[in-house]
Amino acid sequence: MPIKSINGCIGCEECIKSCPTDVIRLNPDSKKAEILYPEDCQICHLCRMYCPVDAIVITPDKSIPVIVSWG
């Protein structure tokens, strides 16, 4: 997956707001950022750059789902 992990999150929501494709959301219980829709990540690194504590790790690969006849 493109956006790989979030560790050491302080729950400031900067990444959530800055992700253009709405990949990250705040977990209502832990109050921390959570990768919810990784398949929509465009690997642009905005979230990582906006994070004040460098909690986000992103890798360049993307597993593109296979093509099927309906879905």
């Binding site: 302080i10 400031c12 109050k31 921390k32 906006y50 004040p52 504590v53």
Partner: peptide, 21 residues
């Protein structure tokens, strides 16, 4: 060249919504 150290620090110590902080 992104978030300045002072902005990051301020954000860090003022995120009071977080138990951890």
């Amino acid at each position: 060249n992104g978030v300045t150290p002072s902005d990051a620090f301020l954000r860090l110590i003022t995120t009071f919504s977080s138990t951890g902080i």
